[in-house]
Computed example of a mutant assay.
Amino acid sequence: MKIEVWQGDITTLAVDAIVNAANESLLGGGGVDGAIHLAAGPGLLEDCERLPQVRPGVRCPTGEVVTTDAHALPARFVLHTVGPVWHDGQRDERALLANCYWKSLQLAEKLGARSIAFPAISCGVYGYPLYRAAEVAATETLAWQRSHREPRRIILVAYNTATFKAYQQALAAAGQPLGDAESSSWAERMHAPLAAMA
C-alpha cells in the first residue's frame, strides 16, 4: 500500500475515520473544522461538549487527539486533533504536528479503523507553512505504514491544487512517487461503500 493523495471535500469520504483539524475547545470553528461540524450535524457538537475539559476551555490540548462518532458523515469516527499555531518554528511546532498524525493513527488502530483520511492540519488560520507541514504529514504517515498493519489505507486530503502538489512532492522526497492517475483512481474507490473496501 501507498500513502494516497486526494483533492476534494474530506467530509464526503467513506472511510473508517476522518481527522478533524480542531481547536482546543472542540466546539467548532472555521475551515475544515466548520465543514466537518456542518456535514456531521448537531450531534457532533453535542458529543464534543460532553468530553471532559482537561483545563478550562480545553478538551484536547495541542498535539493530542480524541474521538467521537461521525453522525451524518459517511465515516465511522471523527478523530479530533489540535495542530500547533506556527510562530517561528522554534516552539516545538514540528514535534506537535507530528504528534497529531502519529497519535491519530494510534487511536485509529485502537478503534479497528482500516482507513483514515487527514486534512492539512495547521495549514489554515494556524499558519503552518504548507511545504513544511506536507513534509511532516508525509514523513509520519510513511513511517507508520512501514511499521504497522492498520490503518492500511491512509489518505492525505488536499483542499486545493497547491496542497495536492505539496503532498505529492513531500511523498516523492520521502521515497514514494505518486502519479495523478493513481490519485484519481483512489478517489473513485473512496466513494464506494465501506463493505466494498473490506
Score class of each variant (00 low, 15 high):
120 A>S: 09
112 G>W: 09
112 G>K: 11
9 D>H: 08
107 L>A: 07
116 I>G: 06
84 P>S: 11
117 A>Q: 07
53 Q>L: 07
137 A>L: 02
121 I>A: 07
161 T>L: 13
38 L>H: 10
128 Y>E: 05
140 E>W: 00
141 T>Y: 01
37 H>M: 01
43 G>A: 14
175 G>H: 08
17 A>F: 05
149 R>A: 15
178 L>M: 07
33 D>Y: 01
138 A>K: 00
163 T>K: 05
152 R>S: 13
171 L>G: 04
99 N>P: 09
83 G>L: 03
20 N>P: 07
60 C>R: 00
165 K>H: 12
37 H>S: 04
44 L>C: 11
50 R>E: 14
171 L>R: 01
99 N>W: 06
44 L>K: 10
100 C>W: 06
108 A>P: 08
106 Q>T: 15
108 A>F: 01
90 Q>H: 14
181 A>N: 12
67 T>S: 14
46 E>F: 06
78 V>D: 03
36 I>L: 04
84 P>A: 05
157 V>G: 00
57 G>E: 06
160 N>F: 02
19 V>S: 09
95 A>E: 15
156 L>R: 03
132 R>E: 15
168 Q>R: 09
168 Q>V: 06
56 P>A: 02
113 A>Y: 04
179 G>C: 09
26 L>K: 03
162 A>L: 11
51 L>D: 13
102 W>T: 15
111 L>R: 14
172 A>H: 13
96 L>N: 08
73 L>G: 11
49 E>R: 15
7 Q>D: 10
129 P>L: 06
140 E>Q: 11
3 I>A: 05
